[in-house]
Amino acid sequence: MTDLQTDSRFADPDSAYRLLIDAHRGLNDEDSAALNSALILILANHIGDSAVLAQAIALAKTTLTAGECKAPV
């Protein structure tokens, strides 16, 4: 079984980030949330490994418990 990979895997992380930003440009907040939900499902399926998905969820949750993420408005 593979573990969640958290090292940097993009050759050009800035362009990957920009793809996400571009995808949301012009969307209202509700559409953005819908897009993100679809995106997460697609990527989760691409990973195809519930154990890895669970690790990703756990890592993402740390950003909430640390109080570092703004609660969505």
Binding site: H24, T62, C69
Partner: peptide
């Protein structure tokens, strides 16, 4: 520029 962009940014920083 948008609340979603702020969330991406803040999530990156928190991670």
């Amino acid at each position: 520029r948008s609340p979603q962009e702020v969330r991406f940014r803040d999530a990156t920083l928190a991670l």
